[in-house]
Computed example of a mutant assay.
Amino acid sequence: MKEIDISEYHQKLRSIKYTEDIGIRGIIDKSTYALYDYNYKKIFLDNFDSRDINILEIGPGNGHFADWLIANGYKNITLVDIEHDNCRYLREKYKNVESINVINNDAISYLKNCEMEFDVIITRHLNRTSTI
Rank of each mutant, 00 (worst) to 15 (best):
K2E: 15
K2C: 15
K2H: 15
K2P: 15
E3C: 10
E3F: 11
I4M: 11
D5E: 13
D5S: 06
D5W: 10
D5R: 00
I6A: 07
S7Q: 15
S7F: 14
E8N: 09
Y9I: 13
K12N: 02
L13H: 10
R14G: 06
R14C: 04
R14F: 07
R14T: 10
R14K: 13
S15T: 08
I16V: 12
I16H: 00
I16Q: 09
T19Q: 13
T19C: 11
D21K: 04
D21Y: 10
I22L: 11
I22W: 11
G23D: 09
G23N: 02
I24A: 09
I24M: 05
R25P: 00
R25F: 03
I27R: 01
I28Q: 09
I28T: 10
D29E: 08
K30Y: 07
S31M: 10
S31H: 08
S31L: 09
T32W: 03
Y33A: 09
Y33E: 02
A34L: 14
A34T: 14
L35W: 04
Y36A: 06
Y38D: 12
K41L: 07
I43R: 00
F44G: 05
F44C: 08
L45S: 06
L45A: 10
N47K: 10
N47Y: 12
F48Q: 09
F48G: 04
D49E: 15
S50H: 01
S50K: 04
R51P: 01
I53F: 06
I53D: 12
I53T: 11
I53C: 11
N54S: 12
L56A: 10
E57W: 12
I58Y: 07
G59D: 04
G59Y: 07
P60Q: 11
G61V: 10
N62W: 03
G63K: 06
H64V: 00
F65A: 03
F65K: 07
A66R: 11
D67L: 04
W68A: 01
W68N: 01
A71M: 05
N72M: 01
N72C: 00
G73I: 13
N76P: 02
I77E: 02
I77W: 02
T78S: 08
L79D: 08
I82K: 07
E83M: 14
R88S: 15
R88A: 14
R88M: 12
Y89E: 11
Y89L: 08
L90T: 07
L90W: 11
R91P: 06
R91A: 04
R91I: 05
R91F: 00
E92M: 14
K93A: 10
K93I: 09
Y94M: 02
Y94S: 01
K95V: 01
K95S: 08
V97A: 05
S99W: 02
S99L: 03
I100V: 13
V102W: 08
I103G: 03
I103A: 07
I103V: 15
D106L: 05
D106Y: 04
A107G: 13
S109N: 13
S109F: 03
L111Y: 02
K112W: 00
N113Q: 04
C114G: 01
E115R: 13
E115C: 06
E115K: 14
M116T: 14
F118Y: 15
V120G: 14
I121E: 04
I122M: 12
T123E: 12
T123G: 15
R124Y: 04
R124F: 04
H125W: 13
L126H: 08
L126P: 02
L126W: 01
T129V: 14
T129A: 15
S130F: 09
T131L: 05
T131R: 09
I132A: 00
I132Q: 02
